[in-house]
Amino acid sequence: MATMKIKKGDMVKVIAGKDKDKEGKVIAVNTKNNTVLVEGINMVTKHAKPSMANQQGGIIHQEGPVDISNVMYLHKGTATRVGFKMDGDKKVRFAKKTGEVID
Rank of each mutant, 00 (worst) to 15 (best):
F94N: 07
A79H: 03
T3M: 08
G83M: 09
V29G: 03
E39F: 09
I27M: 05
E23I: 06
I6E: 02
K5C: 02
V26R: 10
A79R: 04
I68D: 02
G77K: 06
Q55H: 12
V82R: 03
I59A: 13
Q56E: 15
F84H: 10
V26I: 07
K13R: 14
L37H: 05
S51W: 01
G17K: 03
N42D: 06
F94D: 05
I59T: 15
V82D: 01
E63S: 15
D19Q: 09
A2M: 07
T78S: 10
K91G: 10
M1P: 10
L37G: 07
K91Y: 00
N30V: 01
T31N: 13
G24R: 09
G58N: 05
D103W: 00
A2G: 11
G17R: 03
K46Y: 11
Q55Y: 10
D21M: 07
K20N: 05
V44W: 09
V36H: 04
H61C: 07
V101Q: 04
M43P: 05
R93F: 05
V66I: 15
A16T: 02
K32T: 14
N34T: 07
T3G: 12
K91H: 02
Q56T: 15
Q56W: 07
A79G: 11
K13I: 08
Q56C: 10
A95S: 11
I102Q: 04
V38E: 06
E23H: 02
D103L: 02
N70G: 05
V82L: 00
F84D: 06
V29P: 06
T3R: 14
